[in-house]
Design a binder for these strands. Structure first.
Lengths: 218, 218
DNA sequence: TAATATATGTTCTACTTTAGTTCTTTGTTG
DNA sequence: CAACAAAGAACTAAAGTAGAACATATATTA
């Protein structure tokens, strides 16, 4: 049976010939298998020849031929493929990135369908999510900075104290702490130099609840 | 198997015969393959004959015959594989989650190999990354809160002003703003109630540079 | 049909680039 | 430390490029 490297190389050569019609060079094999020296490839190939998996025209370059393929995969390869699969599963969550939150238009209107952000799987295990770029400093004391990416779970109601995306007069979307009193909605900033805004409940709609923050440092 | 030029020529000849019904001349092949001398074509053809891909009627002009073509994969399989590859590329990376950053022991020592966090692909396009849970409030004015997940890019040097994971006396790891003066390292908090700590350069090592923050709201 | 022109194919030399081999060093692991 | 795997340098070989001279087919036409 083959070692993982031998298996990987054999499959690469076979695949490469079937796809490109021509035999890969040692340099290409190096890359594919992930080793840094041609001598490594050389010995792998000798081993594959010895085991009758490939044939070589002597004194020719790029003149390998695959004779047969192994029936079984080495265990390590199976393990690796499983990992890749689960990584794929975990990573499958892409959510749309919907422009800037302080913009004066409703969120739906400014969604570009082709911008997505990949988010941590655990972060959005269920429900519908979207992402916004935060503009402005009004939530700075809640650790939400300008240009942070806010992950929003779609919702139309909120509990007091939650940070929400609120749509005011169907025109302006903003990220604030939600507080509903008897006859009014208060949108609380988390920055002392910003003022609390109060609205009649009919003027304000919850568009989503803040579910995560992602920030990148350059 | 074939070299790229051999493959190109073989496919051209095969195609040409199928399309025009007759074998192309050397001049035509020169153009098709992109070389400037007939001798090159000649040797390519000799090689193709040697490998049993084409046959030649001796002492005849334009008298080549294609015997076989390299085995190909069905196109749909190639397409599918490409899709998987690009999905993988887009997929989020998993990086190890390494315990809490304020802990008194060096980071390497507390890494649990089996805890991972999936992060946005764009966030860690290259290099080696790991993640830490932030403990404490010392960076609160930089928008980094208790329990945030800090994404760290492994590094052993930093520029002044960057937020780094600093290891002090090989014992204590901490997240602070890095500032190197003439003869001392200053670790600056971003919280007025914390003090700046100063060390002799020999006592402090950079373990990584803050590359991202991920926060989850429940 | 023989002579000839043109198209086509072959061989040679010289050279550059790419590919493959071998050997030494280095590092790892049991 | 022995056994092994990998990395790298130095080397050898093959592939590719180019041009010229030569050889052979095929077509033309006197």
């Amino acid at each position: 049976m083959l070692t993982p490297k031998q298996y990987k190389l054999l499959m690469f050569i076979d695949n490469s010939i079937k796809e490109n019609g021509c035999c890969p060079s040692f340099e290409e094999m190096k890359q594919a298998v992930g080793i840094k020296s041609k001598s490594g490839i050389h010995s792998l190939i000798e081993e594959l020849i010895e085991r009758d998996f490939i044939k070589k025209l002597p004194h020719k370059a790029r003149a390998l031929e695959v004779l047969r393929l192994p029936r079984f995969k080495p265990k390590d390869i199976i393990e690796e493929e499983k990992k890749i699969k689960s990584a794929l599963h975990d990573a499958a969550l892409k959510i749309p990135l919907c422009g800037k939150i302080a913009a004066g238009t409703p969120i739906e209107a400014i969604c570009h369908e082709n911008e997505y952000i990949t988010i941590p799987y655990e972060m959005a295990a269920s429900g519908n999510y979207y992402a916004l770029t935060v503009e402005g400093e009004s939530m700075i004391e809640a650790g939400i900075l300008n240009n942070d990416i806010a992950l929003i779970r779609k919702a139309d109601t909120a509990e007091n104290g939650q940070i929400v995306v609120a749509l005011i007069d169907n025109a302006e979307a903003t990220l604030k702490v939600w507080q509903k009193n008897k006859d009014e909605i208060c949108l609380l900033p988390r920055n002392k130099s910003y003022e609390i805004r109060k609205f009649h409940p009919s003027r304000v709609k919850v568009q989503g609840i803040l579910s995560g923050i992602i920030r990148k440092y350059i």
